[in-house]
Nucleic acid binder design. Structure first.
Ligand SMILES: [Zn+2]
Ligand SMILES: [Zn+2]
Ligand SMILES: [Zn+2]
Ligand SMILES: [Zn+2]
Lengths: 157, 157
DNA sequence: AGGGGAAGTGTTATACTATATCATCCGCTG
DNA sequence: CAGCGGATGATATAGTATAACACTTCCCCT
């Protein structure tokens, strides 16, 4: 999802799952049932879900599950780049560009809670040059913005 | 602290406290004892402290205190811009430029946990233009990077 | 001085987020 | 089928944050 526009979401889900399958196969890793189901739950919407939201959905569909199951699955999916963690929300969102190397940035709507993943390269911005200037070795960056998405901008007073 | 270099830290503390006093006076707000003490604790180091770290220090100096006291003080200090929240760490750090309008970015050393506040303007970077392009109304941005500071870069194997 | 409202604090309880630990199971390889 | 490593089950606990309500303090107005 490059912005907040409607799109072929079924295809969106299918291609993300396919990318995850391929990525795991290529790296000799297993997209187990639990991991796959957690990814599917996150893919259902372009919103960030808390680990316990995911847990609730697993339980709602009849799977007994405990927090560690969810956190293990999320850790795996994040490590493989199929899911991103949203630090501002302590929550998780499915990657909109699985497979491609990318350093994502996020636009988070505070009204509808939609999350859009934008393709940026933070290490090439001012932070990167500032880091280089001070001798800081960048390893991971978080770039998140909160505000109102185009859809909610009109709806809210 | 613009980078990880040594500096006149006593002066650093004094000027930050003075800026907080002035800012409160100018806005008709009260820098109460609790708020001031929490700010002082954060100013002691250029590191991010968790709310419960602050709580422990308050208690260590003989003040009975409960979590809400600390969170209220932190909320106030963050709202006034005297303290910043570090989302990646669920922790708080004293502002290095109190008084000045700024949209801060942070470099966080994963070895010594020092936090440097860098002056950047995220809304002018690619995220800003991407947001504008999609009609997203930016309200707050988080820009944080983790890595190794110059001091720890050599020290770690 | 006294009344009264807003802001701040005290206190208890609880919600939400995340991990440690150890036992067990499953899938693969030799 | 024995053995190994990764994955899951299960229980407990650690760490982060807020709700709710009582009480106090400050400040302004009379
Ligand atoms: Zn979609
Ligand atoms: Zn929205
Ligand atoms: Zn200093
Ligand atoms: Zn360091």
């Amino acid at each position: 999802m490059i912005d907040f526009a409607p799109h072929d979401h079924d295809g969106c889900i299918a291609s993300a799952l396919a990318a995850a399958e391929e990525g795991c196969a290529a790296r000799g890793l297993r997209l187990t049932d639990a991991r796959r189901r957690v990814l599917e739950i996150l893919l259902e919407s372009h919103r960030a879900l808390g680990a316990y939201d995911v847990l609730d959905r697993l339980r709602a569909e009849g799977r007994p599950a405990q927090p560690p199951l969810v956190y293990r699955a999320l850790d795996f999916l994040v490590a493989q780049g199929f899911v991103h963690r949203i630090e501002r929300l302590n929550a998780f969102v499915a990657c909109a560009r699985p497979g491609a190397e990318h350093a994502p940035a996020f636009l988070i709507c505070r009204a509808c809670e939609a999350v859009a993943e934008m393709p940026v390269a933070p290490e090439e911005g001012r932070l990167g040059s500032a880091a280089r200037a001070t001798g800081f070795a960048l390893e991971a960056t978080t770039l998140e913005a909160e505000g109102l998405c185009p859809n909610c901008r009109g709806a809210v007073a």
